[in-house]
Structures are given as C-alpha cells and as structure tokens.
C-alpha cells in the first residue's frame, strides 16, 4: 500500500427528493489518501459537511466488499467508475489510487427510467425484485427437495450457471444502457436457471413471465449495444442475452400450460 494523498474536486448531484429538480454542486476534498475506497472518500466529504452543519450527500452502500450490490453511482460518466478502473468493479471497490491530484470527478446517480431518484445519489431499484417475482426461481417448497446427488450437473454447465448467478443486482447494466434495458440482469437469471436440470420444468414459462414484467416496468428493449456487459462489476458476459433470445424463441413454440 502506498501512502500518498491527493486533492480533488467533486461535482456531486444533489437532489432533495424525487419531485424536486437536482443540480451538480462542487466540493473540494483535500488530503484524500490513495488507499481509500471511493466511498470512504465520500465519507470524508460527509464528515466535513456535517461539521459545517450542511446536509451530507446521501448514497446507498452496505457491504463495501463488492458483493451486496447496494452501492452504485455514475463516476465521470460510467457506472461504478468503470472508465477509471482497469478491472470490473463496484463503486465500493474502486480505490482513490485510480485518480490523480487535481482531478475533477463528477458523481451522479443511476439515470434510468425504471430507477427513480429518491435523494441525491440514491435510487429506487425495486423493479428488479419484481422481475424476479415474475419467475426468477425454481418452485420447490422447503422440505420437498430430493437428495442433492440425485441429479448430477456437468461441470461446464454448472460453471456457466455460476458465472451468470454472480449477478449482484446493482443495476449498473441499466444505468449504462442507452435504452434503459434490464436485459443483462434478466438474462443472467434466465441463463443461471436454464443451465441446471432443476430449472428445466419451468424454463419456458419462466422466460415469458420475466420478459413480460420487464417490458411492463418501463425498461427498454435490448439492441445489443453491449454497454451493460462493459460496466458489469461481475463481468456477466453478453452471451447470456443470446441464451435468453434462443430460449425466448423456443418458448413461443412450447406449450407450458399457462
């Protein structure tokens, strides 16, 4: 770990609530250790604002180890500051060593129709929960499971299911998409469950229901731009959307009882 400090200027989106317009406000932040995470730098700003009696900047965060999916802001135009990081990252795992003394850094909330702003950098992502409610599960009640080894899963399929299942539901894919599409999120769940034998009975019904809710919630359609996969902190590959498209077509020719 290096022990450097830098001085930066933040331009932060301040918006009191969902029905009041917001604006960018500049704050100098001095003596930022380059070992700090981006959110620790925001903590530093908030401590200074609080001492001065000003409202601290509201931002969502929780685990601060890149797994809960709660944090997420647009940094210099890219979700999670992907443009400043050599590797896929969440905002909490972006560190200040990626920035330089004198940098001006713009910080904004996710900007997407299905994710309305609550305050400052905080948005409402409950639309994602609704997509999962529509069918992002395997219907098995507690206690109804067969022995775990009853259905072996070929390793390559298990690995592919895992890769898709690493989605943390942060919403960066939607924030990056010019169409505000939630297709990478939806396709990751479709692919995860489609790879597994347990996921087969509901495979076709699941995709129709999830896509139906996705479209009804004001998410846009996918036009294969690929911005979503470029910013995904878990590097969910774009080909999960191909999987979704293939499954969607075959589901249209499959009777599923509903």
């Amino acid at each position: 770990m290096s022990e450097n400090t830098i001085n930066i200027t933040l331009r932060v989106w301040r918006q009191p609530n969902g029905h009041t317009p917001g604006k960018l406000v500049s704050y100098p932040v001095k003596d930022v250790s380059t070992d700090m995470s981006f959110l620790e730098m925001l903590d530093l700003l908030n401590e200074e604002l609080t001492v001065k009696g000003e409202e601290p900047v509201a931002f969502d965060h929780d685990c601060r180890e890149g797994i809960c999916g709660m944090c997420g802001v647009v940094i210099n135009g890219t979700p999670h500051g992907r443009g400043s990081s050599p590797v896929p990252t969440t905002t909490c795992q972006l560190h200040m060593r990626m920035f330089h003394d004198g940098d001006v850094i713009t910080v904004e909330p996710w900007r997407a129709r299905p994710f309305p702003v609550i305050k400052d950098l905080v948005v409402n992502r409950s639309a994602f929960d609704k997509i999962i409610q529509a069918g992002g599960f395997i219907s098995v009640n507690t206690g109804a499971a067969p022995e775990a080894h009853a259905a072996p899963v070929p390793k390559l399929k298990a690995d592919r299911a895992f890769d898709a299942a690493t989605c943390i539901g942060c919403g960066a894919c939607v924030a990056a998409c010019p169409n505000h599409s939630g297709m990478l999120f939806t396709a990751a769940k479709i692919t995860h469950l489609a790879m597994l034998p347990q996921g087969q009975p509901e495979r076709h019904l699941r995709i129709k229901k999830m896509i139906g809710v996705h479209d009804a919630l004001d998410f846009g359609g996918c036009t294969n731009i690929g911005e979503c996969a470029a910013v995904c902190p878990k590097a969910i590959p774009l080909d999960v959307i191909s999987q979704l498209n293939r499954d969607l077509i075959s589901s249209l020719f499959t009777r599923d009882g509903k």
Partner: peptide, 22 residues
C-alpha cells in the same frame, strides 16, 4: 444434510467435479 438438498433443488450453483457431483 437437508439444507444442501434444499439449496441444490433451488438451483444454488455449488462447486462440482467433472463427474457432475458436488
């Protein structure tokens, strides 16, 4: 042991070996 059965049935992608077992 029931927990592992339940989670596998839900589609939890536990690590597997080439034979397909956990």
């Amino acid at each position: 042991a029931n927990i592992i059965d339940q989670c596998v049935a839900q589609g939890v992608p536990f690590a597997r070996e080439y034979g397909g077992l956990l």
